[in-house]
C-alpha cells in the first residue's frame, strides 16, 4: 500500500508543479463546449436538450488530450524502468497512475462540468445525475485511457492513435452517462444507469491494471 501512496504522491507533486497542464485540459473542455452554441444556434430548448451529451462528449475529448503525457515523460527519462524494477508490482503502478490522472484531470473536469451545464441551461433535475455520472464515469475513463497510453507508448503519432484505440472502448460510459442525465431530467429512474456505470468502474478497476501492466512490460522489454 505504501508503494501506491508513494507513487500517487510523486505524481500529484509533479502535476502540481505543472498545474498549467491540468488547467489547459479544463480550458479545452470549456472552450470546446462553448463552440457548440455558435455552431447550432443559441435556441434555449435545444441547448438544454443537448446539454448532457455535449458535456460528456467534450469531457471525453478533453480527457483524450491528457493521456499521451501519462507515461511518456517517465518512459523517456528512465523512471518507468525504475518503477518496473522496484518492489511494487506494475499493476499497482498502473492503478496509482490512473488514480493520479483522475485526481489531476478527471476531478477538475467533473468540477467544471456543472459550469458548462449552467451555460446550456440544463434543467435543475439533471445536476445530481450529472455529478454522479461524472463521478462514476471519469475514473473509468482514466483507467481505460491508462491502457491506451501504455499500449501506444513509444509509437509514432502516439496521440491520434491513442484516441483511435480508446474512444471505441469508452462509448458505453458515454451512452449510460448521458442516458442517466436524460432520465433524471424526464423524471425516470436513474438507478439502473448508475448501477451499470458503477459496474463498468469496478470491472475496469479489476481488468485494466492487468492490461496496462502487460503493455508496460512489453514496452520496456
Amino acid at each position: 500500500m505504501s508503494a501506491l501512496t508513494l507513487i500517487l504522491h510523486r505524481e500529484i507533486r509533479l502535476a502540481l508543479r505543472q498545474i498549467s497542464d491540468s488547467a489547459i485540459i479544463v480550458l479545452f473542455f470549456v472552450l470546446a463546449a462553448v463552440l457548440f452554441p455558435f455552431g447550432v444556434g443559441p435556441e434555449p430548448n435545444m441547448l438544454a436538450r443537448m446539454a448532457p451529451g455535449v458535456v460528456w462528449v467534450t469531457a471525453l475529448l478533453a480527457a483524450m488530450l491528457s493521456f499521451e503525457r501519462l507515461f511518456t515523460p517517465d518512459y523517456e527519462d528512465g523512471s518507468l524502468e525504475q518503477l518496473a524494477l522496484g518492489p511494487a508490482p506494475l499493476e499497482m503502478v498502473a492503478i496509482a497512475k490512473a488514480a493520479a490522472h483522475w485526481l489531476t484531470t478527471g476531478l477538475p473536469l467533473m468540477i467544471a462540468a456543472p459550469l458548462i451545464a449552467v451555460l446550456y441551461r440544463l434543467p435543475d433535475a439533471g445536476y445530481g445525475a450529472l455529478i454522479t455520472t461524472m463521478a462514476l464515469g471519469t475514473p473509468t475513463i482514466s483507467l481505460i485511457g491508462t491502457v491506451g497510453a501504455a499500449l501506444t507508448l513509444g509509437s509514432r503519432r502516439g496521440g491520434v492513435l491513442l484516441s483511435l484505440l480508446v474512444i471505441p472502448l469508452i462509448i458505453p460510459v458515454l451512452i449510460f452517462g448521458t442516458a442517466a442525465i436524460d432520465a433524471a431530467i424526464s423524471g425516470f429512474a436513474v438507478g439502473q444507469h448508475l448501477m451499470l456505470m458503477g459496474g463498468f468502474l469496478l470491472g475496469a478497476l479489476v481488468l485494466t491494471p492487468l492490461a496496462t501492466a502487460a503493455a508496460l512490460r512489453q514496452a520496456l522489454e
Partner: peptide, 18 residues
C-alpha cells in the same frame, strides 16, 4: 493502426495483441 505504429514490428504486434 497500432500494429504499424512502431519502428520495431515486434513491439507493434505485441501491443496490438493486447
Amino acid at each position: 493502426a497500432l500494429q504499424n505504429a512502431f519502428d520495431d514490428p515486434r513491439r507493434g504486434e505485441r501491443s496490438a495483441a493486447i
